[in-house]
Design a protein around this nucleic acid. Structure first.
Lengths: 111, 111
DNA sequence: GCGGTATTTCTAGATTTACCGAAATACAAG
DNA sequence: CTTGTATTTCGGTAAATCTAGAAATACCGC
């Protein structure tokens, strides 16, 4: 995963509505939840919700599967874990002092 | 930390330039790095960099300390760990199957 | 106080975003 | 093939964001 992808994913979660959607999906677990459920639960107009869902899908954090007339949405746990892992590597999760060590794999890219 | 704060922090990292700035600061470690260093390293105009830095500071992920004419910037590791932790709790870091368990502390809020 | 370096604020244009009602599409049931 | 439910696309507006040059500010050394 490159920086751009990471930034896009973070951006997609950087909005209260979308973060709420994602959280609701995480809590819905592997089974996921229909768009309508999210709509009722979050009280967001359908068009708005659809707009936000698209963003989450674009960056790979959410998937959709059609079941007859309803669309089941699911949080992509693998993608999320990958994202968190990447961010954690960059940002030294729970080891503030690892900053020096982190520089060792710093030689590749520019930014 | 509430959802709004979390969203703001994620949003602040959801931009390639800012994410690069933050990463550079993480790698600079506890000592931090001057604005000028970031400017040269990232090749971003001062005014643009300043604008992005302000955002990171606003959400508490970066701090600044004046040393004579130069401003030292530092990643706030504690804030970042807090953020990652919170996100991890919500999103079941490395335990996709914990979704069911996560619902147990789901009864409090609306979204 | 003057000169010089470091950094921010001001300003402004281009782009993107969030929002949501109305209309359109997808699909199942009868 | 009509009706009803689920969801998206369309259209348009208001607000926020990114970008960067130019001017202003902060601070040190002399």
């Amino acid at each position: 995963m490159d920086l751009e992808t990471l930034a896009k994913r973070l951006d997609s979660l950087g909005n209260v509505t979308r973060l709420s959607v994602f959280r609701a999906l995480v809590r819905a677990g592997r089974d996921g939840a229909p768009v309508g459920y999210l709509q009722r639960r979050l009280g967001v107009p359908g068009s708005t919700l659809s707009h936000h869902l698209r963003k989450l899908i674009e960056v790979g954090l959410v998937t959709q599967e059609r079941q007859a007339t309803t669309l089941i949405c699911r949080a992509d746990f693998e993608a999320m874990n990958e994202t968190l892992g990447f961010l954690g590597n960059e940002c030294c999760r729970d080891l503030p002092l690892c900053a020096a060590g982190a520089e060792e794999d710093d030689r590749r890219d520019v930014a």
